[in-house]
């Protein structure tokens, strides 16, 4: 059994996750800096689309991986997802508590959802890439 997959053969999931994270954070800062007025929605919508497109691309390239430690990926991924759903939920709670409503709330929620997907994916991949691949 291999000790770990050939690192050069793995897709750039980490880099794509970081790019998605940067896009989402930039959108969040843009929206927050305009409060209490509603910021123009064009930029937040663009970053959300970019963020989810990058997540989708990662899901696609990950689904094509065969020699990979999927058991480690899911082990880390599910617990990290739980943690970031709690964190994202708390931040959403604060926004709702502060009276964020309508389009702004939808955009913020979508950003938090993207955030809560990106980080577990990043953590899970970072661990699984150094683990022996599962038998398949």
């Amino acid at each position: 059994m291999k000790d770990m997959p050939d690192q050069d053969s793995l897709p750039p999931v980490t880099e794509v996750c970081v790019a998605a994270m940067i896009a989402i954070i930039a959108g969040g800062i843009y929206m927050a800096s305009h409060l209490p007025k509603a910021a123009a929605t064009t930029l937040p919508i663009i970053v959300i689309v970019v963020g989810f497109a990058l997540i989708g691309w990662n899901v696609l390239v990950l689904s094509r991986l065969r020699e990979f430690s999927w058991s480690s990926f899911w082990l880390v991924g599910r617990w990290a997802l739980l943690a970031y759903v709690v964190i994202g939920g708390m931040l959403a709670f604060v926004f709702v508590r502060d009276g964020t409503r309508g389009t702004q709330l939808v955009l913020v929620t979508l950003m938090l959802i993207a955030y809560a997907l990106i980080i577990p994916m990043l953590l899970a991949f970072s661990v699984a890439r150094y683990q022996p691949p599962d038998d398949y």
Binding site: T14, V18, M21, V76, L122, L123, S126, V127, R129
Partner: peptide
């Protein structure tokens, strides 16, 4: 979250 924590976990 992008560099430090993944390295820590790995």
């Amino acid at each position: 979250l992008g560099i430090l924590e993944p390295a820590n976990l790995a």
